[in-house]
């Protein structure tokens, strides 16, 4: 899963390996940088809480879901993280086209005008905040227009691709 924190521009990407009520870190990236983490997590079904084991140190984070964000208090510090792909999804649906979730540069165009695409198919790669975002077809349809080429700079909210249902 990808996360953005309230007080930093960096996007973190996390994949966990879950075995029963234990989780360990399979993959941890901050932007393009891969980070090694030996942190493990234990889920206590009884109390509905999770515990962190960090190199023999046991932490008991207090966590609350508020809207799309998680509020996490650990070692008496409170942080807010929000799933990073949420915004792009809602704006594309609102506008009936595919819009840029943040200002950036078009790195790759995977489709041609007139091509038929299926729902969930990757259409374009956008680089923003030193991170790559896949632009994905929100529904099946036919590509009506591609508004930007590779290397073009786009503003947040620019319509990238129009799809005809």
């Amino acid at each position: 899963m990808k996360w953005k924190s309230d007080n930093s521009d960096k996007v973190w990407s996390v994949r966990l390996l879950i075995e029963g009520e234990q989780a360990s870190v399979a993959h941890l990236k901050c932007g393009d940088e891969t980070i090694q983490s030996d942190v493990t997590i234990t889920f206590d079904k009884q109390s509905g809480s999770i515990y962190v084991n960090d190199d023999g140190k046991k932490l008991n984070p207090k966590i609350t879901k508020v809207g799309d964000s998680w509020w996490v208090t650990v070692s008496s510090q409170t942080f807010v993280v929000t799933e990073a792909l949420h915004n792009s999804k809602s704006t594309t649906e609102d506008q009936g086209g595919l819009t840029a979730p943040m200002p950036g540069i078009v790195r790759q165009v995977n489709v041609d005008t007139g091509q038929k695409v299926r729902k969930g198919q990757p259409l374009m790669v956008l680089e923003a905040m030193k991170m790559e975002h896949q632009i994905i077809a929100p529904q099946a349809g036919k590509i009506e227009a591609i508004h930007y080429n590779e290397g073009d700079r786009v503003e947040m909210g620019s319509v990238l691709i129009s799809i005809f249902e």
Binding site: W3, V14, A23, S37, V39, I50, V72, V74, S75
Partner: peptide, 20 residues
């Protein structure tokens, strides 16, 4: 931030996966 790098994001992912 005195926590290990990525810890908050790891916790949030675990919270989602375990359905907290």
């Amino acid at each position: 931030n005195k926590t290990p790098p990525g810890l908050i994001e790891i916790i949030a992912t675990a919270a989602e996966k375990f359905g907290l």
